[in-house]
Design a protein around this nucleic acid. Structure first.
Lengths: 255, 255
DNA sequence: AAGACTCATATTGCATGCATCTGCGCCTTG
DNA sequence: CAAGGCGCAGATGCATGCAATATGAGTCTT
């Protein structure tokens, strides 16, 4: 049936991955509004894969939190309140705090910290410029992602890494979820300057074995994202710029 | 084929749930040793359900962490080091610390705290006895589970609740994973006395709005499980008493 | 006119068929 | 006798068939 493959596809779980990515895009783009049941046959038509991969992808997206099993069967697109987003960020920050503490307590050597040091230096190069282009913001996102990966790695625990990965997979909870917002606002550079200062302090605290300080810094670092979320909610128009703004069930902002 | 159902089964995802529970039992009982590929046809024979639910159950168990996707496809039973178990407990403790802090910061009213107060009182009734029967330990496990559920609920965040749920689903990371061990050792009651004292202090801290103290207490409370884990590892025989002792890849105890 | 019931349709969950690929054993050969 | 290649059995991933059930429209009743 679906044999009209233009290019040769490779890998085992290719259909499932394709379905998963396609569904994610459809949901985040708002094509499937929150609360709506995700019809499997409709997705078969849309995505060009059969029901089996679609179902498997839905199962994974449910684990990810984008959809939830419906009462009568199937899956429905989940809605998120502002409090949900804030909590997801707080969870990530808390777990990154744990990772930072563990990293500090392991007393890493200078060479252990080399990748992180290089990353911070590279970030300095980006943030240090007086005015940031869009390419600069992209570079920041890349380096920022690497910083957080490396922080996770330094914890020395795959279990903690898994937990952080799952927390960061929640919508809007990724370390770079709001960076793109900075690019469109005047004080965007200042936010990056603050965040970068935290990167540096975090590196310092880990290098000195200051576990509690590292944990506090990592948690506070995540709250930069909290602030950006708040700002975006106060200025509702900005939400349109986010990939998944339509998933937000507004009017439920928590104090 | 598999139509020889003795009793009528009900519910939609019944076959998947059955496969999931059956697989979990097989793995935790050591019937499927770590590193072994889980053959789907073999599970079809063992569990009496077709490959579709088996595959879905494997997907869920992979999310749970009991199995991992193999390099060439399929799933393999995961092995756990002592460090993995300790880290999983630490992750749960950290997240419960977050929940406790959020609960305290919400300044719950006395009636909000009523279920937790009642639970602590009931636990007093169990732990207060001079000698504990096996039924007492069972009662403790029940009440302890309720305490942790209620703590999670008091955080007021479904997102945090989800994160804790996932953390506690890791093997050995559940709040009651090691309680049964206490029953078989002389100082078992003392451990429960200590844990119960922490329950009481946690309730007090939350009631007073002392967020940081509540977080620290919850984290330290989880470390009771860490201690029991260490003790069990030092006395290897005790591992046989655990449901999933065979999953442990020993000789990898971290300092 | 509003609400409840009924029936046709669509969808879900499970089972199974099919092509491809991995892994293993056997045979051949140097 | 050892090493390498070949072939086969089994397993995986995807597609699809089938029965049970929810959904929604249309109709009938009050």
């Amino acid at each position: 049936m679906t044999r009209e493959r233009v290019a040769e596809d490779e890998g085992r779980g290719m259909q499932v991955v394709r379905a998963q990515q396609g569904l994610r895009e459809l949901i985040l783009a708002g094509d499937l509004p929150p609360g709506k049941r995700v019809s499997e046959p409709a997705m078969v038509d849309r995505l060009g894969v059969s029901r089996t991969p679609v179902r498997l992808a839905l199962e994974r997206l449910a684990q990810e939190g984008l959809v939830a099993p419906g009462a009568t069967g199937g899956f429905v697109v989940r809605a998120f309140t502002a409090a949900d987003l804030a909590d997801a960020i707080e969870v990530r920050g808390t777990l990154e705090g744990l990772a930072a503490r563990l990293a500090a307590e392991r007393r890493p050597t200078a060479s252990d910290l080399a990748p992180l040091r290089d990353c911070v230096a590279a970030l300095d190069g980006v943030v240090g410029r007086p005015a940031l282009s869009e390419a600069d913001f992209d570079a920041y996102v890349q380096l920022n992602a690497f910083f957080h990966e490396e922080l996770t790695r330094l914890s020395g625990s795959t279990v903690v890494a898994r937990a952080i990965e799952q927390a960061a997979a929640q919508p809007f909870a990724s370390p770079s979820a709001f960076v793109q917002l900075h690019a469109t606002e005047p004080v965007g550079r200042d936010t990056l300057v603050i965040a970068q200062d935290q990167h540096r302090l975090l590196l310092e605290a880990i290098g000195r074995g200051e576990g509690a300080r590292a944990a506090a810094l990592a948690a506070e670092h995540a709250r930069v994202a909290q602030r950006r979320l708040r700002a975006a909610l106060d200025d509702g128009d900005r939400l349109a710029g986010l990939p998944a703004g339509s998933l937000l069930r507004l009017a439920a902002a928590r104090a």
